[in-house]
Amino acid sequence: MNELIGLIFISLGLAFDVFGCLGLVRLPDVYNRLQAATKCVTLGTASILFGTFLIVGFTAAGFKAILCMLFLLLTSPVAAHAIARGAHRSGVKLWEKSVIDRYKEDKEGEA
């Protein structure tokens, strides 16, 4: 029974991973790509690791999978935040159809 639930988690994670990478190819600028890729790939891989834990059980590999999942859920948003900030400060433009850019307005107001 555990194995069946684990396989369901793994297939869900696979679907999310593929959609995330598709978003990386299709969307128009850095920030949108970051959104799609970070969300989908993080939750997809976390769910693959959780499925691994369910299949393997309480063994060495199972505990390592749980640790890896926690680590991924904690660090991946931080990495995305750092890349977005660095890209904006180094002058990467938003997509030309974007609606508004409050961050740029505020930074120009201060300078």
């Binding site: 959609f19 598709l22 978003g23 299709r26 969307l27 128009p28 600028d29 920030y31 949108n32 799609a36 938003l94 997509w95 159809k97 974007s98 609606v99 508004i100 850019d101 409050r102 961050y103 740029k104």
Partner: peptide
Amino acid sequence: VAHPRLPINPGI
């Protein structure tokens, strides 16, 4: 992502 017309409307 799967929608053919990409229904996005981005901004900060």
